[in-house]
């Protein structure tokens, strides 16, 4: 039986009060109900060495086309919605750019609907929008996507559960151990407080790092609104990186 929002919100508040300031969510975060059976009970094991994980897959010009970064040009017509540009840099913990690595994005359409069979939200599909994109980072670690602002959508975690608008990001670093899959949110969304997935990051400062900034200088007259979002990849520790090279 799904619980009402106030039960979830109370659990969110209790866990926020106990936050240890961690950068990442705990894999065991009860307000996100499906985490219950999908997190390990045993502590993770630090391997004595990690030769493979300190290196990582390589992607190149052949893996993307220049059009893959524009989600508004994948069909004959223009998608519905508010056209936006999302740009930023992928950096490591030391602030060094992550160059020539793959960034993948996926998102709901402007109505909050994914073209996925299991998405049963009765909002319209957009024949001119699939919602997937990819690009390689440039020499400065930069990436850019042109897309439309995704809509909020309901999900069944609890009664009246709604996801704030978000774009899913998949990012590769120079090591397999730097892999990151995350979600970018839009500033000022009123749904933030109610969403157990965003709130699974219990530290407020860490949570803010998931929210893009509106950047008026990036907005293009008569064309699109600009958002800036930098991504910083975690681990492995610096000593390990040096040993691995």
């Amino acid at each position: 039986m799904p619980e009402p929002q106030d039960v979830i919100s109370r659990e969110i508040a209790e866990l926020a009060a106990k936050s240890d300031g961690a950068d990442h969510p705990s894999r065991d975060y009860p307000p996100y109900r499906s985490s219950g059976l999908r997190h390990p009970h045993r502590p993770l094991v630090a391997p004595p060495e990690a030769y493979a994980e300190l290196r990582g897959p390589v992607f190149g010009a052949s893996d993307v086309t220049p059009l893959d970064g524009d989600l508004t040009r994948q069909h004959l017509g223009e998608p519905l919605g508010e056209r936006i540009t999302v740009t930023g840099r992928v950096l490591d913990r030391d602030g060094r750019p992550v160059r020539n690595q793959l960034v993948e994005v996926w998102q709901a359409n402007a109505s909050g609907r994914y073209p996925h069979l299991r998405d049963q939200h009765p909002a319209p599909l957009d024949p001119n929008f699939t919602g997937t994109g990819r690009c390689l980072t440039d020499a400065y670690g930069g990436y850019t996507f042109t897309t439309i602002k995704p809509g909020a959508y309901p999900w069944k975690n609890h009664v009246n559960a709604w996801r704030p608008a978000h774009i899913h990001f998949s990012v590769f670093g120079t090591a397999f151990a730097q892999r990151l899959v995350t979600q970018m949110y839009f500033p000022g969304d009123p749904l933030f407080a109610y969403d157990p997935i965003l709130q699974s990051v219990t530290d407020e400062k860490a949570r803010e790092r998931l929210v893009a900034a509106y950047d008026h200088d990036l907005s293009q007259p008569e064309w699109s609104l600009g958002y800036r979002w930098d991504i910083v990849l975690d681990g492995p520790s610096a000593t390990w990186m040096e040993e691995g090279r």
């Binding site: 950068d23 990442h24 996926w106 996925h116 997937t132 899913h168 990151l180 990051v201 400062k205 975690d234």
Partner: peptide, 18 residues
């Protein structure tokens, strides 16, 4: 620099990642 937090891949990556 502090890292960007992880978030779940969710249920609807199927037409984007595989």
């Amino acid at each position: 620099m502090r890292p960007t937090p992880s978030q779940t891949v969710g249920p609807f990556y199927g037409y984007a990642l595989p």
